[in-house]
Nucleic acid binder design. Structure first.
Length: 371
DNA sequence: AACACGTGGGG
DNA sequence: TCCCCAAGTGT
């Protein structure tokens, strides 16, 4: 379709040569859309399973990081019922490294629910999608729009940014969410709701970026209030968030031949359900001596060796410093209650969060000295 | 309504 | 280096 005919089609409230914002957006999208593994080719229907899976993975996570995980998941579990049949443990193993592990637990719970309560078919309304584990207001709207072409506008961080600039929303996030939601809905075309949403997200990801937005390339630049004011960099407004205090702890890397002592973290909370080496609590202001007292008790343990240096890791809400102690025990030494031995060679298959991969790498590194 | 919840990359 | 950010949800 030529731009001209599109202009003619709907141009009521605006000057004849200016397409409406929803249409301008769609025209831009048809030329510049990103090709992503979970997106259907133009004109084709998208698979709700792939849309859902990608939306969960993309929560607070970059497209680049998601790519390989998405491929691994769809190749191992091609549809919801397959995923519903998997064990939560297998799902956590495949998710290890992506972060926010409650997403993986909810992903599995959701697959089970869709299989058992919806006959293996995703519900196609926002309300019923919203009732699924791990599916909040954003994801429900995104699936409804993208997979089922429901006329609704999901609002994510990209869209918040684009909309807050377009209308120069002075109110701070997250208080401004309802207003932004309302304004975002005005960018919905009469049809192709999913493309409207994805267009806005692509725009936010590639043009209307957090820093130095490329306004000259933006299909909405003419009507953008922030740009007119030259203040686009200052939106969205939000209060600075406080960072958590440094926490310290100790981690214990115990080997028995070519095996490593590990345990599983509690279901809920930080790194819930993931594998770890035994360790102390992680507390602000904790000293090394106190942390070391929480070492596991093992028969046939010669002595603890403290590795030089510390392992540092930054979580969303606090930074962490871990001192690493190593020890070897004799063959056939029993693992303490609720712990187990795993071959070091198969560690890659464990549900190990990255902080634990760092700890183990440091503890096992023969070139790094002990004190 | 705040706060918990991972990780890696960019400026 | 440090700080912010990335397709948010659950409590």
């Amino acid at each position: 379709m030529s731009p001209k005919s599109a202009l003619k089609a709907k141009s009521e409230p605006v000057p004849p040569e200016t397409p409406s914002r929803p249409l301008a957006l769609l025209q831009w999208y048809d030329r510049h859309r990103r090709r992503l593994p979970w997106r259907a080719p133009p004109g084709e229907a998208s698979d709700p399973y792939r849309v859902w899976l990608s939306e969960i993975m993309l929560q607070q996570t970059t497209v680049k990081a998601v790519g390989p995980y998405f491929e691994k998941f769809v190749s191992r579990w091609p549809d919801v019922t397959a995923l519903g049949r998997a064990s939560q443990e297998d799902v956590l193993r495949m998710w290890a490294g992506l972060g926010y592990y409650s997403r993986a637990r909810n992903l599995h719970a959701c697959a089970v629910a869709v299989t058992r309560e919806h006959g293996g078919t995703f519900p196609d309304t926002e309300v019923r999608l919203r009732a699924l584990p791990g599916v909040g207001p954003y994801t429900a709207a995104a699936i409804a729009a993208i997979a089922f072409d429901r006329r609704t506008m999901p609002v994510d961080g990209n869209i918040e940014r684009v909309v807050s600039r377009l209308f120069a929303v002075e109110e701070e996030l997250p208080q401004a969410k309802p207003l932004i939601q309302e304004l975002a809905a005005t960018l919905l075309a009469d049809s192709r709701a999913g493309d409207s949403a994805q267009a806005l997200m692509d725009l936010g990801a590639s043009i209307c970026t957090p820093k130095k937005p490329a306004c000259s390339l933006c299909p909405l630049n003419e009507g953008c209030t922030a740009r007119a004011l030259g203040t686009q960099d200052t939106f969205p407004r939000k209060a600075a968030k406080k960072s958590g205090a440094l926490r310290r702890g100790a981690a214990f890397v115990v080997t028995r031949g070519d095996e490593l002592l590990v345990r599983t973290r509690p279901e809920k909370g930080l790194l819930g359900g993931m594998t770890e080496v035994p360790g102390s609590d992680w507390l602000a202001g904790q000293d090394d001596a106190k942390a070391k007292r929480q070492a596991p008790e093992l028969k046939g343990l010669s002595r603890w060796q403290r590795k030089v240096g510390v392992v540092t890791h930054v979580f969303t809400h606090f930074p962490l410093e871990l001192v690493v102690y190593t020890a070897r025990v004799e063959a056939r030494t029993r693992a303490p209650a609720s712990m187990r031995w795993v071959p070091i060679a198969t560690l890659a298959d464990e549900a190990l969060p990255n902080v634990m991969r760092k700890v183990i790498a440091h503890g096992l590194d023969p070139s790094s000295p002990s004190c």
